[in-house]
Design a protein around this nucleic acid. Structure first.
Length: 486
RNA sequence: GGCGUCAUGGCCGAGUGGCUAGGCUGGGCUCUGCAAAAGCUCCCACAGCGGUUCGAAUCCGCUUGACGCCUCCA
């Protein structure tokens, strides 16, 4: 098996990946809070982990990929209404209708982007019992306290033995110094303490009974409980967006330590943000673009519609740990590159072999693996794929050669990287329709060739130009005319 | 204010102490009836200032700037 290096945000270093159990990987990724449509920035994170999931599968690992759905609303501050409830009130729906609506939307969008489904997709509300049990354990272990129907995690006490801030590289002393005292209306002993269980006010709709009264679980707890349940007290990879590092993931570590007396995760991975106009995409500021707006082109930031594959390719051209800025120019450039890549890939089935090879397929193949083994460096992989594109075009013209064996290995490799690992899809034209379309276009090509033979350039150009308007491009090559559909 | 990340050519975006990223765009050439496509080729770089080094865009320090987190956030 290839040696894979993963950048661990716990150590801030690339580390050789060694799963706990040989050949098996347990991976947990924080999913969305389903109170509104996912925007493109949300999609980027899930796509980054889709790439990681796909590559692990490609390497032959058996991966259990758990990604939760947060369907219990959490509070933006101690006294506000949670987002799901707010949305339910605005849309005049039950909270669970909101949850259902946006869960379906989330699945549909990710499917359009050709993301593979996780192995398990647990919900927070489906694991209230387990969350209550975890709180009991933390209370028993003396690292939480109950006040007025709520239970809080005692961060200062935890910090006596463990380091609260190990992931986000913070010192709790700094946090305390920089905390402004807000009126003291909170039940917390310390502002850094976080809720494990919150007492439900009468108007709070999502509510469950507990040993501490009617309430609802704290935000961080669900991930601890569900990852433990499905992946064990210790598992290989935990992922999420960079913005979840603190406090969410920090709290997860503290909760797991408090429950299970062990660090839960060997490799922490954080995907970086998608920005637009240099600022983080965020619905609250209006600086965001929805996937459906990409598909229809109906957004002031873009000049035309783009397919999900193009958007996917655009995002894969940047490394998952880099900030990526979305712009019309950038995605237009990606679209051209994407088309060039996919046209070359579609040519691979038509290539012919020779007696010798003018290209070192094995060396090229290893470079592709090296790129992905270096912390899933998809931009480098894509650069190597473009090297292959050039080679394919020369091969087609007979200017390069491959033996039968090399050709097979070459086409197998390029197809598996493009489709299986990067998860790109070729243009969606139904097989049947494509056959019919081909017939029609071939007929027009014949007519045009007759016109060209007669030097009737007006007619031949008319056929070519009008087809182009319809999105069908003719290409005159040495072996006759071919066409592509845009 | 605290913590952290990043500053690469016209645009997007990789990267390593000495050697080509790649894509898009622009110029030239080949091919073509003309185009397009494809191929070849050219131009344009590593924020600024110091330091380490035989040698740094790559390591260290400072300056400037941008962004992220510190409240829900992918």
């Amino acid at each position: 098996m290839q040696e894979l290096k993963i950048y661990n945000t716990l150590s801030n270093k690339k580390e050789v990946f060694k799963p706990l159990k040989n050949g098996y990987v347990g991976m947990y990724v924080c999913g969305p809070t389903v109170y509104s449509n996912v925007h493109l920035g949300n999609v980027r994170t899930f796509m980054s982990f889709d790439l990681i999931y796909r590559y692990l599968l490609h390497l032959g690992y058996k991966v259990r990929y758990v990604r939760n759905i947060t369907d219990a609303g959490h509070l933006t501050d101690d006294n506000a209404e949670d987002k799901i409830s707010t949305k339910a009130r605005i849309e005049k729906l039950e909270p669970m209708e909101i949850v259902q609506k946006y869960t379906v939307d989330f699945h549909q969008i990710l499917e359009k982007f050709n993301n593979l489904s996780p192995s398990i997709e647990p919900t927070a509300t489906g694991h209230i019992v387990e969350q209550i049990e975890a709180i009991k354990t933390i209370l028993e272990n003396g690292l939480a306290y109950e006040v007025n129907g709520s239970v809080y995690f005692d961060v200062l006490k935890y910090n006596e033995k463990e380091h609260y801030g190990i992931l986000s590289k913070r010192k709790i002393e700094d946090a305390i110094e920089n905390t402004r005292n807000l009126d003291g209306q909170s039940d917390k002993k310390n502002p850094q303490d976080f809720a494990l269980w919150k007492k439900a006010e009468p108007e709070h709709i999502q509510r469950w009974p507990s040993p501490w009264g009617v309430g609802f679980p704290g935000w961080h707890l669900e991930c601890t409980v569900m990852s433990t349940k499905y992946l064990g007290e210790k598992f290989d990879i935990h992922g999420g967006g960079m913005d979840l590092k603190f406090p969410h993931h920090e709290c997860e570590i503290a909760q797991s330590q408090a429950c299970n007396h062990t660090a839960p995760v060997n490799y922490w991975m954080h995907g970086n943000m998608l920005t637009m106009n240099g600022k983080k995409m965020s619905k609250s500021t209006g600086n965001s673009i929805l996937p459906n707006e990409i598909f229809t082109g109906e957004n002031e930031h873009i000049s035309k519609a783009f397919s999900a594959s193009v958007a996917r390719f655009f995002m894969l051209q940047a490394h998952y740990r880099s900030i990526l800025d979305f712009s019309n120019d950038a995605i237009l450039a990606s679209e051209k590159g994407y088309i060039r890549l996919m046209e070359a890939v579609s040519l691979t089935s038509k290539l012919e072999s020779s007696k010798s090879s003018s290209f070192d397929v094995k060396a090229w193949k290893q470079k592709c693996y090296d790129a992905m083994n270096d912390d899933f460096n998809s931009p480098i992989l894509i650069a190597h794929l473009f090297e292959a594109v050039k080679f394919i075009n020369l091969l087609k013209d007979g200017k390069e050669t491959l033996t039968k064996e090399d050709l097979l290995e070459f086409t197998t490799t390029i197809n598996s990287f493009v489709f299986d690992v990067l998860g790109l899809e070729s243009a969606e034209v139904g097989e049947d329709n494509l056959d019919k379309l081909s017939g029609v276009v071939e007929m027009l090509i014949k007519m045009r060739n007759q016109a060209r033979a007669d030097k009737d350039w007006n007619l031949s150009d008319k056929i070519r130009d009008e087809l182009l308007i319809l999105g069908i491009q003719l290409k005159d090559g040495k072996d006759g005319t071919s066409f592509t559909v845009n």
